[in-house]
Write a protein that binds this DNA or RNA. Structure first.
Length: 574
DNA sequence: GCCGTTTTCGGCCCGACTGTTTTCAGTCG
């Protein structure tokens, strides 16, 4: 059972307990535990099998929750959750998805109107029965109807590039206005999270009204959903929702810190403030009524005795402790990258020739690249067999001889077949400068078989790196069931590197697992997996993911100069 | 339900906005 599945069980438990009117702090304990479990890189289920394991070592997991996790892992279910589910109609969790409906209102709908499904809910609203309930009214009824529509066509979380592009376009336009002094993206988009649920903008203005009018009239905005004196929520034409907060100049840093989140990080910061007799909110840091800090984020962190923490790290995964000890990593930057070691050409499913790719890479300042077309298993992409691959490498050699200022490696993206063999024989692989081994097919195989396949690649002396290890496509394809601990241990033992694939749909390894790979001392390579010359521009998304994992320049192998990288390779390929 | 350099009981982050209310509960981020 994967950690995300365990976490989902606790989140559902929390929802249902809330509906039941349970102690809100007890509910919170379940949600905290869910977040903790999600952020652990090792498999909790695997941990449970070990003889001396102690789940209560994790923050927010005590004796009771540890027991529940054990039960869940061993039996696949939780009696407490089963009982709660039986008490409520099956559609109950869907009702929470409707904006404006929380546990209290949903409970009222179930208890007083016997609503059992979204269909019932619609009918009750249309019949005007919902408006008659205490605490409900005509407006609530209308907003539920609107919410029902929205749930049907709900926009899922959007990929970072989409969110970032829209947010930055709006910021650029707002920044032109005289009424607005500062404006910036906050929220998960500023933390460079791989997906964003909504967008948060923060601005300072002497005329908040005017700032909000500007946003409301922006061509990307479809509708104003809510508006107060300092806060406006709008829906963009793309379906993404965006919040704008307008704050006074003196509060800008505090507001930026607050609205950048994450929620979990902010809770830790506020607790820290409390311990120091301070209160932190979006307007500043206060001692009693007295304003202590808030103009810049640095001031806010300094007020709680911390150095400034990069937004990418603000997830309450240990960054506060690192900051406290002045051990925050100096995060890798896009400009640190000197090579790109995963790309395709017209030999398989790319759209540019070897030369075109090499020239485009050189234009972007790269000093070395690896051409890594597909192996034969990927028939759809016209994958290469041994004969074609050797001919392809000859072509690469030719271009290499004609170009200066960039080194070109003869590589291959070799499939790890479903039966745990590599798609090309050792004698071919031994001739390559750079071998990426990847899972493309059979991602749904049971974990033992997945593990067997990975081990086959990791123990092969010619394999340099595992590419997009989990095989996931964000929002559309689930990751393979990998035992990361075992994979990393084997990679470290055999000197195999790990890829962060920079394709925004992949970002694989993800942040949590890339951090774990770093712990094992495994060199990480950030690669674009370009299929065209424009593909190189996605490198930054891979770097963002690496930053979220806390990786420095020294953790990322393709920040090395060609000379240094060559030495690293020579150690494996004498 | 968790947690502890004031601790094993009594806390647990904080404020804006909406709609339904006449002073506030519920929801949301």
């Amino acid at each position: 059972m994967q950690n995300a599945v365990i976490a989902a069980h606790f989140d559902e438990l929390a929802d249902l307990l809330e509906l039941q009117g349970a102690n809100p702090f007890r509910v919170r304990a379940y949600r905290n535990a869910a977040r903790t479990i999600e952020n652990v890189s090792q498999s909790i289920a695997d941990l449970c099998v070990k003889p001396d394991h102690d789940l209560t070592e994790f923050a927010g997991i005590g004796k009771d929750l540890a027991g529940k996790i054990e039960t869940l892992v061993q039996t696949g279910t939780l009696p407490q959750l089963e009982e709660l589910r039986a008490q409520f109609p099956p559609d109950v969790l869907k009702m929470f998805k409707i904006p404006g409906l929380g546990p209290k209102k949903v409970a009222a709908l179930i208890d007083q109107l016997h609503i059992g499904s979204l269909h019932d809910l619609r009918a009750a609203c249309e019949a005007g029965r919902v408006a008659t309930l205490k605490g409900f009214g005509k407006k609530t009824e209308q907003s539920i109807l609107a919410g029902l529509e929205q749930v049907q066509q709900a926009v899922q979380r959007v990929l970072l590039p989409v969110a970032k592009t829209e947010a930055e376009a709006i910021v650029a336009d707002l920044a032109k206005s005289r009424e607005i002094q500062k404006v910036e993206v906050a929220g998960s988009c500023r933390r460079l999270k791989e997906t964003c649920g909504d967008l948060d903008l923060l601005a300072t203005s002497s005329k908040p009204e005017a700032a909000m009018d500007l946003l409301a009239a922006h061509p990307l905005v479809e509708k104003v959903l809510a508006r107060g004196e300092t806060k406006q929520r709008v829906r963009l034409r793309s379906g993404i929702e965006l919040d704008l907060r307008v704050v006074p100049e003196d509060s800008y840093g505090a507001a930026l810190q607050y609205f950048t989140g994450s929620k979990e990080h902010n809770i830790v910061i506020r607790k820290r403030a409390q311990e120091r007799g301070l209160k932190v909110n979006e307007y500043g840091v206060f001692r009693g009524e007295h304003f202590v800090a808030g103009r810049t984020e640095e001031d806010v962190y300094a007020a709680v005795d911390l150095p400034w923490i990069p937004p990418e790290l603000r997830e309450n995964r240990g960054e506060v402790e690192l900051a406290e000890q002045h051990k925050l990593p100096k995060l890798v930057e896009v400009d640190d990258i000197h090579g790109d070691l995963h790309m395709h050409t017209t030999a398989t499913d790319g759209t540019a020739s070897i030369r075109e790719m090499a020239e485009a890479a050189k234009e972007r300042g790269l000093k070395y690249i690896a051409i890594t077309d597909h192996s034969k298993r990927v028939t759809m992409a016209n994958g290469l067999d041994a004969k074609r691959l050797r001919a392809h490498w000859k072509e690469i050699d030719k271009v290499r001889g004609q170009m200066s200022g960039i080194e070109i490696l003869c590589g291959i993206e070799c499939d790890i077949l479903e039966d745990a063999r590599l798609d090309l024989d050792d004698d071919v692989l031994s001739e390559a400068d750079w071998v990426i081994a990847v899972l493309h097919y059979g991602l749904k195989q049971p974990r033992d078989q997945i593990q067997k396949r990975l081990m086959c690649a990791l123990t092969n002396p010619h394999v340099d790196i595992i590419g997009h290890p989990s095989g996931r496509l964000i929002g559309s394809r689930n990751p393979a069931d990998i035992v990361y601990e075992e994979m990393f241990r084997a990679a470290a033992d055999h000197g195999v590197m790990m890829e962060i694939n920079a394709n925004p749909q992949r970002l694989d390894l993800d942040d949590v697992h890339a951090a774990a790979a770093k712990e094992h001392g495994i060199p990480i390579v950030i690669s674009t997996d370009s299929h065209s010359v424009n593909g190189f521009d996605t490198m930054r998304y891979g770097v963002y993911q690496a930053r979220r994992a806390g990786l420095t320049k020294h953790d990322v192998a393709n920040t090395k100069t060609w000379g240094e990288f060559k030495k690293l390779l020579a150690r494996r390929k004498p």
